[in-house]
Design a binder for these strands. Sequence first.
DNA 1: GCAAAAGTGTTCAAATTACACCCATGG
DNA 2: CCATGGGTGTAATTTGAACACTTTTGC
Lengths: 237, 237
Amino acid sequence: MTSYPNISGILLAIDCIIFGFDGKDIKLLLIKRNFEPQKGSWSLMGGFLEANENLEDGATRILHDLTGLKNIYVEQLGVYGNVQRDPVTRTVSVVFFALINIDDHSEEAVKLHNASWISLDQRPSLIFDHNEMVYKAIEHLRYKAALHPIGFELLPEQFTIPQLQKLYEAIYNTPIDRRNFSRKLLSTGLLIDTGIKNAHSATKKAALYKLDTARYKEKFNSFWNFMPDSMENGVRI
Amino acid sequence: MTSYPNISGILLAIDCIIFGFDGKDIKLLLIKRNFEPQKGSWSLMGGFLEANENLEDGATRILHDLTGLKNIYVEQLGVYGNVQRDPVTRTVSVVFFALINIDDHSEEAVKLHNASWISLDQRPSLIFDHNEMVYKAIEHLRYKAALHPIGFELLPEQFTIPQLQKLYEAIYNTPIDRRNFSRKLLSTGLLIDTGIKNAHSATKKAALYKLDTARYKEKFNSFWNFMPDSMENGVRI
DNA sequence: GCAAAAGTGTTCAAATTACACCCATGG
DNA sequence: CCATGGGTGTAATTTGAACACTTTTGC
């Protein structure tokens, strides 16, 4: 048996939802399309899966194309395949969720693709079902960051606890008590004090920490039970 | 623009991981293939996505085919698309995760497909990457059931608290304190006492409860913080 | 020396755990 | 009447929430 009878192929696309954090807001890397279809509209960065390419490799390729980065934190977020989601022809899209340190991206690559970093609350409407994908990604970020230490993926290698707090406040769009936050984070044992103080500060300089990567891997799957409600859905069909 | 240039289609399959609970063990509905490829081997129930079919509709179709049921709890679990995963031809599979009340399935449909309910710890090795899919599904079941009230999907409409406890003990393969479990479950406010007592019992008859569906929907997305560790992975690529 | 941000401590309430006792049922 | 499983209570511990004071820095 060398083929399946009477089955025809479907176009497989990959779309990437790329989150960054600028110290104040959670941002998305979106592109203003200078190509068809829907030239001029905003969309996620995407592309077609190549003939001899694994899904994750396709995502890696597309992420590298837009950011110049390798070794990005990526998860599969889901597949979108409604019959009429792409008006050109039937296309099924595998969506990937990526977190990067916003300082590391390649400015040239971003410019080349006509992309911009846009705050979540200022994001334009996107083509096709990309709005739905982004909505799900934001929910996933909230869900996952409440339970696992993925926040660090959005920060530079060295960071202060106040920075980390601002990140979580941005993710959940809610103020957090400084003292409880600090205590909780330090108690995870995930942070290593570098002994250095943050230079960029007009007042008291905060201590710079780095992630204990060994402990991070070890503890990645133990729950944090950190933030208030967020969600994930099961669909009843 | 009515087509994309130079892009060729890929076969899209759907595979379903179907969990049941017989009062003692968590079981999987698996099929012993009486068709090619890999005739005689065990696999998940699957099929190809049809030309004008949405993904969820495909899953619904396949689940109905095998169980005779509609309105099953289903979630997308992920996509598997490694280039060589299917030796016949390149196929990308969208995997769905389903929970059903084992008493409701159609025996004829199951027999027709040469399928059986098999306990997790007795499951045979499966074809292709189906073992990996099942492994991920079990992890997902543990993860999700610790945080959301999905356990009820595996039970009959009316159930006792000891039954519910056996279910969670089976999911986590660990004993749970009877008294604390009962208190915690009742405190969720999700259970309605039917006033009826369980007939099938040689000793004291347990109270039968049913799910408060309104409250279930309302509280589905609030965390439970229920069970001990389980996991979910982010892939670093 | 003062405004602004960082670091640390204490108290109270709530949730979780670890236990022990009594009740209903069928044989 | 007794073995089996179901139902409920309580004390000890742990965890989380709320809140106040001191320190460092640049101007």
